[in-house]
Design a protein around this nucleic acid. Structure first.
Length: 254
DNA sequence: ATGCCCATCAGAGATGGA
């Protein structure tokens, strides 16, 4: 089973990029983030053989899951804060697998309410992950984590030292999640590979010079980690005209 | 130290992204 994730930075602006990528790569499941709008074009994916579920809001955020197999929605929001109305979470069962799509808050600038919201969101997610482990529920969590896990995951740590994605608290929560027994799929298969990024700024010729960061991840529970055979970043879409600032990353499970 | 680019909503320029 092949599962991909891609922050598309507006599904409306990226629809042709996404449908083309699906035709070429034929994943079983695609997780998308930053749909940016209330309209989700599910009808564009049906002819390609994909069912769709989406959680949207006006202008901001938004997550969707496409699958070649029937989708059973488990949850459309991360538990733990009834007042949190952001469209950032979608949990489903499809192809006999629990799959969770997240768009974790950015959190900048550090010290603002945004950063507090990010850390609280990470605490809520970590609690949920701990519960999945305690109940031995196999689960794969994919999406835009907005976390640079380690120094190797950015071109120059000094450039990111003040950023919410690279704060000790942010990275600490990510390590806590790994500590519950979850596996960072890409890092597990490419333990020492630097310069492997999923996001590049639109400006400063960041992509051309590979000044990027690795912030789109898959975390696998132990049951699924044993089935992990491949995990790759596909830089090709980021090189196209009018790209998203993120590029897809995918995993293959036996 | 700051803005760069890109997208949304709205119909200009503010806001968010990371």
């Amino acid at each position: 089973m092949k599962i991909a994730t891609w922050n598309v930075n507006s599904i409306r602006a990226r629809l042709d990029h996404v449908t083309h990528w699906l035709e070429v790569h034929q994943p079983d499941v695609l997780l998308m983030q930053e749909l940016k709008g209330t309209e989700f074009p599910a009808e564009a994916f049906a002819p390609l053989g994909y069912q769709a579920e989406a959680v949207t809001q006006k202008a901001y955020n938004g997550v969707a899951i496409l699958s070649r197999h029937p989708i059973e929605v488990v949850a459309i929001a991360l538990p733990g804060d009834e007042a949190d109305g952001h469209a950032r979470y979608l949990e489903v069962n499809t192809n006999n697998t629990r799959i969770v799509n997240i768009y974790l808050p950015n959190g900048n600038p550090v010290g603002s309410p945004n950063f507090g919201y990010k850390l609280a969101w990470m605490a809520r997610l970590a609690k949920h992950m701990q519960q999945w482990r305690e109940n031995n529920i196999p689960v794969i969590i994919g999406g835009d984590f907005n976390v640079i896990p380690e120094d190797i995951d950015c071109h120059k740590p000094a450039s990111w030292i003040k950023d919410a994605l690279f704060q000790p608290e942010t990275r600490g929560w990510y390590r806590t999640m790994l500590g519950y027994g979850f596996t960072d799929a890409f890092r597990a298969l490419h333990p020492d590979l630097g310069g492997a990024f999923t996001y590049w700024d639109y400006f400063r010729r960041a992509f051309e010079t590979n000044r990027g960061i690795r912030i789109d991840h898959f975390l696998l529970s132990p049951e699924l980690a044993t089935r992990l055979v491949r995990c790759e970043i596909d830089k090709e879409p980021r090189s196209q005209p009018k790209p998203s600032d993120h590029t897809p990353i995918w995993v293959e499970l036996q």
